[in-house]
């Protein structure tokens, strides 16, 4: 069987790395969501704290990832962005943690063109090229989704929906975990599941 040398060492290292990662990451349902300060495309600084009192959806993105395209090609993500961001009591923040030189990292001109092409509508699109915020949230995939309540507590993290595929035809059949979490939390009902395994491309952090 083909394999890399030192497999055991690699496996142990991976196990340890995973444990450390899991302990360090600040984001877990029921705990306060890590605050951040990120620039949007227009250059303005946005913090999580500034949205206290409103529901916040975080969407990790990479426009060249086929799993992200799944949700944009038919206008689904844009519709949800408008629904959530269009309400007084909620905002939708799209975050890109692709490092320079990695897939999904664009210059300002390309961002503008791609955003127009897809007619995207988040409250803000925030850039995290050094990956610090992505790592603080334990964002591993695109899309990777988070829902934060008006007090700043994380109520949901994980997959966008229940069908792990890159096929847009599955969207309507799937259960949308994000919208359901938001709806249940707004109504004061428990959010179940509060955490799922995200699926999609890996976040293209710096190597």
């Amino acid at each position: 069987m083909k394999r890399t040398t030192g497999w055991l060492a690699a496996a142990l290292a991976a196990g340890i790395a995973w444990t450390v990662f899991a302990q360090q990451q600040g984001a877990r349902p029921g705990a306060e969501a890590p605050d951040f300060s990120l620039r949007c495309l227009q250059g303005n600084e946005h913090t999580l704290r500034q949205f206290r009192g409103r529901w916040v959806v975080l969407e990790w993105t990479n426009y060249d990832c086929p799993f992200v395209r799944k949700f944009y090609s038919g206008g689904h993500m844009q519709r949800w962005q408008r629904e959530v961001g269009g309400r007084e009591d909620s905002v939708w923040l799209t975050i890109c943690s692709s490092a320079p030189g990695q897939q999904g990292h664009f210059d300002a001109e390309t961002w503008a063109r791609r955003n127009t092409e897809w007619n995207v509508a988040p409250t803000a699109l925030l850039l995290d090229p050094d990956g610090r915020v992505g790592r603080a949230y334990g964002a591993t995939h695109t899309p990777h989704m988070y829902v934060i309540d008006p007090e700043g507590t994380l109520v949901y993290m994980g997959a966008i929906d229940s069908i792990r595929s890159a096929n847009p035809a599955d969207i309507e059949r799937a259960e949308n975990y994000v919208l359901r979490a938001l709806e249940n939390a707004r109504a004061g009902r428990p959010v179940e599941p509060a955490q799922t395994r995200a699926y999609g491309c890996t976040v293209k952090y710096a190597n």
């Binding site: 069987m1 394999r3 496996a11 991976a14 591993t140």
Partner: peptide, 17 residues
Amino acid sequence: PLPEIFDEPPLRSFGYK
């Protein structure tokens, strides 16, 4: 066939290169 293990901490996946 038995896959290879791809380690990219904190992620691990399985496949055929």
